[in-house]
Design a binder for these strands. Structure first.
Lengths: 212, 212
DNA sequence: GCACTAAATTTTGTATACAAAAATACGAAT
DNA sequence: ATTCGTATTTTTGTATACAAAATTTAGTGC
């Protein structure tokens, strides 16, 4: 599946739509429909869907058919658990390995978040939020850890939080918490960072659960 | 990809061969060759390979082509890092949630390991070794955590350890270490379990590195 | 109205065809 | 012998065809 292939185009498109909840979870994806919609052969669509199956974004129905994996209330717990495990793990590694330039990158992301919230760019702020967490993974310098993070549908869960940011309070809290984590990283203080990160994730789960 | 489909058959076959190192890492998989070998159409093979791509067992070459993901020396570090993160995380959850029956299952696996080593069934012992670790993941009751474990190619790395078990000492050490972890679980003592598990994994990495 | 069956339709699984791209083999020129 | 270019073969990406399976629709008797 080369980056310039039709299958890859379809793969990216469907993936994006799933991750951004433009396709509701539980939806059945009809190969033919997507082939028509994207004007490619069913073969190309099938290949894209099969890959997404491998990435656990889709599941097979009992009697065949691709369905968007649905998120149950139980999954919120699962995702918080694994998210904490992976992010705290990444934090430990990142604190060992991070350079001053990279700390500056994190700070920049925090600033971007602040500015976008002030400017009313809430989707942008949400992106900066995700980026903050993904950057910590990146700075842990462990390819597999990043893969695990992505293939755990964490980004999916994260985007759902858009809906959570109902009050301006939430944005301000997020901002404060990110900066607390950042400071711990700057000081190479794993214990403080772990504490701040866990509190941050815990609040996120609570916010997500309250709105179900 | 229904369980009775040809694609699924091919998927299972290729997957098994990769995980058991019957196909060396870095090998290019030619669609047509597998189609002939398994007597199915190239379409079915392609579908199987695409799924394995999604599962990160295969990667694409620069100019197309499916290759078995190779394990570099650097990966050994990466895998040990993520393995520790995931297994320690799973251990914490498992200790919270495990039932007495499940503790008994773990004990049975330890006994099986002992018996197979004594009987000279070294491959079987290796399987029991894997099973011990996977069971802890299972008892953590987090589907995504298990998925992350599997999609990090940890089982692949693990099987490579077959080669490591050169001396009978290694088996005895493994046995002792497993039982130490088991005891900690039985006592619901996370700190002791974590310590034993980390030591166990660390020794595993050392053994793996020595033989490169 | 409801349960059940049969027919019609949709959807999937698989094979095949073929052009484009990549890899390989071969030979000439230096 | 090495490098280059060209011809040949292999391999891939995509479309299409078609039978099998699943789903929907329609009709029937109750």
């Amino acid at each position: 599946m080369k980056p310039d292939s039709l299958s890859y185009t379809v793969y990216l498109e469907v993936r994006k739509k799933i991750l951004s909840h433009q396709i509701p979870s539980g939806t059945r994806l009809i190969e033919g429909d997507w082939a028509r919609k994207m004007d490619v052969s069913r073969t190309a669509v099938r290949e894209a869907l099969t890959r997404l199956l491998g990435e656990h974004l889709l599941v097979m129905g009992e009697r065949g058919g691709y369905y968007v994996k649905s998120i149950t209330a139980d999954n919120v717990r699962e995702i918080r658990e694994i998210r904490e495990i992976l992010e705290v793990g990444a934090l430990r590694l990142a604190i060992e390995k991070i350079t001053d330039e990279e700390v500056a990158v994190l700070e920049k992301i925090c600033d971007d978040f602040t500015n976008m919230v002030e400017g009313g760019y809430l989707n942008g702020a949400c992106e900066a939020d995700m980026k903050f967490h993904e950057s910590i993974l990146l700075f842990s310098r462990n390819e597999r850890l990043m893969e695990a993070y992505h293939s755990s549908n964490i980004p999916l869960f994260h985007l759902k939080l858009e809906e959570v940011y109902s009050h301006m309070d939430d944005y301000e809290l997020t901002d404060k918490e990110h900066r607390r984590i950042l400071e711990a990283i700057r000081e190479r203080d794993f214990k403080a960072g772990k504490k701040a990160l866990k509190a941050h994730l815990y609040r996120g789960e609570m916010a997500a659960l309250n709105m179900e």
